[in-house]
Structure formats: structure tokens, C-alpha cells
Design a binder for these strands. Structure first.
Lengths: 239, 239
DNA sequence: ATTGACATATTGTATTACAAATGAGAAGTG
DNA sequence: CACTTCTCATTTGTAATACAATATGTCAAT
């Protein structure tokens, strides 16, 4: 999974440091080690350390200044929409709460994306959504196919059809959210048909160019997931 | 404005290269120069060039591999929520169309943020929103104060009150959007009172813990701006 | 035509050296 | 004593050099 192979040294150091920073190993105690110290710790040259530091700086995790050394930025400065940062967060956080935040974000983005798609999608883009929907239907009746992957394809095809770069950019974010979801939601087998039916309603609203319906259908879809997670969290807190 | 002073060399190179990449100077033609070439072009050591390349790579703009050289990633890979990337985009794009995309994003984020704030904001956070609103009122009657800054403070205080890290992260994004807006919207002086009145409705909905009203009031607020920009774009296309 | 070996260009890594910035403490001064 | 100024030490910033690793294309041999 981690696949820390095939990476060059500075990338490997970046991975390790990034994970360590986000899991809070340097937040409270004696501060961040100096470049020289890290050279020893990791057994690599200062060149590689510096390149790693620059990359982490570009993601908003740290800053460095002469004599002062390297300091970890407050979490509010971290670029959470960077896929690496997102990955490190998921590796170090209890994911049920992060998942709720994910879903709240999806509740913001996806209904609006669906509405924009209904207004501005090209015929080609609508065909893409249709293809993804057919993929879900196929996976619904054929267990060898992945319903999960088709589901992701459906949602991202809508993001693409919004023709808004900032929304499309959240593709990885939504994919990640859906991937995390799958770990918690045991897909009630009987309801697969219902799920596909609901996705179909979203598709039809978009293809019929009805922004408001597309928006509320999508909101409905995500709200179900939020209700499920809220229940899950409540269950966990009871223990 | 640019303030390219006070930066170290690798940061300066990063700025220049980033701007050049996003404005498309390397997208179609002979490809990206090699590190050695850039050392000559910029008159700096390979160390600085490499650090700049690493930073741009961390923002998703380029990748580099031995023998193959440095290649510009497709725009879909760029991390648009990186404040530097955002800045470079605004410097190189006709901002009226970018502004519409900004507003579409705000239409996704802010109503949801307001709804979450109505549900989960602490009393302290609601007080913050109230403070920002009072700031707007003060600026409305005192021309020496900046209504614009108070406006930004109001919107970001709601993002903070959502208590969702992913939404709060978009603070810079929303600030930037509002800053760009001001360049296009000549604030009709008579309507200032109306604008403040609408912001007050959002605040009251949040403080009364009414998520749905907070959401629709915020959506109304942003929709007005979208209508304005659409008209502006139509006007420009007529010419 | 396919394969294999080799030359070549480019990034990757290490090392050394010195410059620049800055914070802390010493030294000096009223 | 209070305050300023100077010096020094620490840490990052920049440069230069050298060689390793990697992948691409070429050319020859089968």
C-alpha cells in the first residue's frame, strides 16, 4: 500500500516527515530538528533533506528561516486538498470523524456540481455520466464487477460535467471520501437496487437539464450517508 | 504588490517559473528547459533551481525524471487551492471568467458552511460573526473604514464557525474571490444598507440555530453576485 | 526484424565551502 | 542599574564539483 519503493530519497524523506508532522510528533515537544540533525537521523545528504523541507513547505506544513530553524505551521495552514497531505491525515486520524467532515464537504460540493452539470454539461459529458451509471447497473447484477469503482466514476463524471475547474479539482478529494466510506458502510445487499435507482434520478435530472432537481436529488443521496455515519458515531460513543 | 524582494533565491525562481507555467509559456512549444539550461537562464546554482523544481512539483505543476527531463503536468493536476497557484492563475487569466468560477464555488461552500455554523458553532464563534457584522455596519456609516475588509471578515468567520477543517481551509480561496469581486462590482452606494441588511439575516439565522434559513439566505446573497457577473459577461460579449 | 549492448543526456545524491541572517549574550556606556 | 551596542555562534541559504542512477535512442549482431 505505502509503496515507498520506487521513490527517490528526497521523496521518501518527505513521506516520513509529512506523516510525522501530521500525526503530531513535532507539534508540542522540543520543536523540529535542524537540517544537520536530520542528515544524521536519516543518513542522507543535506541536499535531500533540504529538498524534502522545500516540498513540505510548499504544502504549507513547515517554514524555515536562518538561525530560527524549521517550525511546524499550525494545522490551519496545511493544504488539506493536497493528496499527500490528505493521505497522511487519514493514516493518523480516527477516520469516523474525518469521514463526517468529508461528507459535509461532499454535501457542499456535489449538489452544486450536479446543478452546474444540468446547466452547462456538453452532450459528451452527459454521455459519460450515463456510461458510469450503466457501469453501476452492470456491477449491481454481476458480483465480479466493482460497484464501488463504478460509484466513484459516476460521482467524478458529474464533477467533470460541472465545467468548473475548482470543483473538478476536488475529484481526488471525493474519490478519497468514497474510498473511506466503503470501509464503514456495509452495503446492505438488498438496497443496491434502491441505490442505483437514486443515482439514476440524479442522472435523469441532469440530462433533462433540471438544475434544481439535480441538486436536491444529489443532496438526498449524500444526506443518507450522513445519517448513517451520525448513527455510527452515536453507536461508538455509547460504548 | 509582487514583493519579490525579501525572498530567497529558490523562492524567487519558483515564483517566476510558476507564473510562466500557468500562463502557458511552456505548454505547447519545445517543452521545459533542463536544470542546466535554467541555471544559465537565471544565473543561479543548480541547488536553487532544483529546490524550485521540487516546490513546483509539490504543487502539482511539474514532474521530473532522469533522462526525460522536466514536464509540465496537465492543468487538471494543478493544486488550485494552493494560494500561490491561485495567485498565478489570477495574474494570467482574464478574471471575469475566473470570477464566475469563483462564485460558483462560493455558491457551493458558503450556504453549507452557514448551515453547519447554525448547527455546530460555539457561542464564541457566533460572537465573532456578530463582531464582523458590526464592523460592516460601522463601515457603512463611516467612509474611512473599509466595508470590503469587514465583508471578508464576515464571510470567513462563518467558515470558521462551520467547525469543518476542509471548509475552513477555503478561507483564503473565499478571500481571494471577494478581493477579485471588488474590482468588478462598483458597490452601488445606495444599496449598502440593503447589503448589510442581507448579511444581518444570515447572522440572525445562524444565531437562532436555523440551518435551512441560514443556507438559503447565504445562497441568496451569492446568487445576487452571480446574476451581476453574468450580466457583466453578457455585456462584454456584446462588444 | 528482433534482440542486445553501448553511448548519451538528464536528473539524483553527496560533499565541501562559504555567505547571510538572526538571535543571544557579552561588553561597554550613560 | 538600565540601556545600547557589538560580537559571536548557530542555522539556513547558495555555489561548485563530482559521480551515480536512469532511461532513451542508436547501432550492430544474430
Amino acid at each position: 500500500m505505502a509503496l515507498i519503493e520506487n521513490l527517490n530519497l528526497s521523496d521518501k524523506v518527505t513521506q516520513e516527515l509529512g506523516r510525522a508532522i501530521i500525526s503530531g510528533e513535532y507539534s508540542n515537544d522540543s520543536g523540529f530538528p535542524s537540517e544537520a540533525k536530520m542528515c544524521e537521523d536519516y543518513g542522507v545528504s543535506r541536499t535531500s533533506i533540504r529538498e524534502a523541507v522545500k516540498m513540505l513547505g510548499a504544502k504549507g506544513l513547515i517554514t524555515s528561516r536562518p538561525r530560527k530553524g524549521i517550525v511546524v505551521e499550525p494545522a490551519s495552514k496545511w493544504n488539506l486538498y493536497d493528496t499527500s497531505v490528505l493521505k497522511w491525515m487519514l493514516e493518523s486520524s480516527p477516520s469516523l470523524f474525518v469521514l463526517r467532515e468529508f461528507l459535509q464537504m461532499r454535501m457542499a460540493i456535489e449538489p452544486q456540481a450536479a446543478a452546474l452539470a444540468a446547466q452547462f454539461a456538453t452532450d459528451e459529458q452527459i454521455k459519460q455520466i450515463e456510461q458510469a451509471l450503466k457501469g453501476m447497473e452492470a456491477a449491481g447484477s454481476d458480483p465480479t464487477l466493482s460497484l464501488h469503482e463504478a460509484d466513484i466514476a459516476f460521482h467524478t463524471s458529474i464533477l467533470a460535467a460541472s465545467n468548473n475547474r475548482f470543483i473538478l479539482q476536488l475529484r481526488d478529494f471525493v474519490s478519497t471520501a468514497l474510498n473511506v466510506s466503503i470501509q464503514h458502510t456495509t452495503p446492505a445487499k438488498g438496497s443496491i437496487k434502491a441505490i442505483i435507482e437514486e443515482h439514476d434520478k440524479v442522472y435523469r435530472a441532469i440530462s433533462l437539464r433540471q438544475p434544481e432537481r439535480a441538486k436536491s436529488m444529489t443532496a438526498y443521496l449524500i444526506d443518507e450517508a450522513i445519517i448513517f455515519i451520525d448513527a455510527e458515531i452515536a453507536k461508538q460513543e455509547q460504548k
